[in-house]
Structures are given as C-alpha cells and as structure tokens.
Design a protein around this nucleic acid. Sequence first.
DNA 1: GTCTCATACCTTGACAGCCTAGGCATCAGT
DNA 2: ACTGATGCCTAGGCTGTCAAGGTATGAGAC
Lengths: 111, 111
Amino acid sequence: MSRSERKLLHGTLDTLILKTLSHGPRHGYSIARWIEEKAGDAILVEEGSLYPALYRLEKKGLLKSEWGLSELERRAKFYSLTPHGSAALEADTEEWLRFSNAVTAILAPGG
Amino acid sequence: MSRSERKLLHGTLDTLILKTLSHGPRHGYSIARWIEEKAGDAILVEEGSLYPALYRLEKKGLLKSEWGLSELERRAKFYSLTPHGSAALEADTEEWLRFSNAVTAILAPGG
DNA sequence: GTCTCATACCTTGACAGCCTAGGCATCAGT
DNA sequence: ACTGATGCCTAGGCTGTCAAGGTATGAGAC
C-alpha cells in the first residue's frame, strides 16, 4: 500500500473494525488479517493503528473485550460489538457511502 | 456534514482540488464552491483546510498560481494544474478507486 | 447611513488518527 | 540456534483537518 493510500484510511479503520466484528467476536490480530484479506492488497492494517483504534472503540463503548485463547491456543484478547457499536456501524456505513459516492462521482471521467 | 465525515476527507481533498482544476483554472474560493456543489451536502470544504491544501499542492509543484480578477472583478488567486499535477491526479484517482471499492465491498451487507 | 451577507484571501492553535519503530512472549520449522 | 508467524502493546512524530480568528471590498436591505 502506498503512502497516500495510507492517508485514505483516516476515519475508515474504526468502521472496518466494527464491520469485522459484526460477523462475530475476534481477537485483534485476527481482525487485522481479516480486513487485509478482504481488501486484497488495497488496505494494510498496521498494528500501531489497530491497537489504539481498538482501545478507542472500547473506551467509546462500541466494543467490549475479553481475554481468551486463539485458534492456535495463544493468549488473545477477543472483541465483540456492543449494541451501541452495532448502531455506530450502521450510521458510519451510511456516511461512508454518501461520502465515497460523492467523491467517486466527482473523480469519474465525466465529473 | 457530520464530524466523522470530516475525518473521511483526510487525504481526498488534495485529489478533489486537482480534479476541479482539470477542467481549467480557478481561484481558491471558487474551487471550494465547485466541490461542494458537485458533492451536494456530502462534502464541506472549510477555508482552513482549503488554503493550506492549495499552498501544499503548489509547493509540491502540482499547481501553479497567478493573481487575477474573479468573475465579480475582485482580486483572486487563480490556480492551474501543472503536468506533474495532471499525473498526480491520475494516480490518486486510481488509488482512490482501489481503496474505496475495497472499503465499500467490505461494508456491503454481504461483506 | 448603517448593517449584514457574500466574496476573496490568509493564519494560528488545537486535536485526532495514522505510521514508524521499537518492545515482549510463545511456538513451529529449519 | 535462528527465523518467522502469532499475539499483545506503546512512545514519538507527522500530517491534515477544523475552529476561530483576521483583512478587505461590494451589494442589497432597511
């Protein structure tokens, strides 16, 4: 992922995390891998962005966490959506669509 | 535009400015109005974001500027794309599409 | 005549979010 | 013994946005 693409991530990482967890609880490391896999190589989730984001979201009451064991039997912190988090995901998704549609329309060859 | 939508602008404002100028030279104030009009109410271009962005882009050699008179006969600084700016617009547009398509696909109901 | 709004430029300071670059620990494979 | 993957975390810096101010002119309302 190039430098400018990283800047684009601004503001969308939180939403992507919420979306990931809408499919069920996951630990942090796994959330990052899931997003990257879904995005091909269009998004790279750095750990220095991921963990602060998880902390931020939990502090805001959008996530809750619990220590457990990963698929490989390692210590891992599992996150899950709170009802508040579900609502935020819905609102953020709508905002993203409004914004990205506007930008895409402008950048289109005819725009 | 809500708070989180403002954060989404991060990194895309420069590209939107380049795109605006790809239709021909414009002064700063007019660039902002053009983007907002095209975007409906999905994007709000604050002057505190606009002018630093123009300075940034000119410093990077993507734009050049020239003082002139606006449609209303007021003193105004007109910006136009340099060849370097045209190339950047093309690259940025492609990056935006890659990124936004990835995000949109993930956030889609089935994602 | 005064007041407000739109046009047009700019700057300062705060803040948020991302990245770089480290650190720690365990386990599998070479 | 070493490397890489898994899994967590943090400190510091950078960048871009916003809020809130400033300047100046002209048009229109009252």
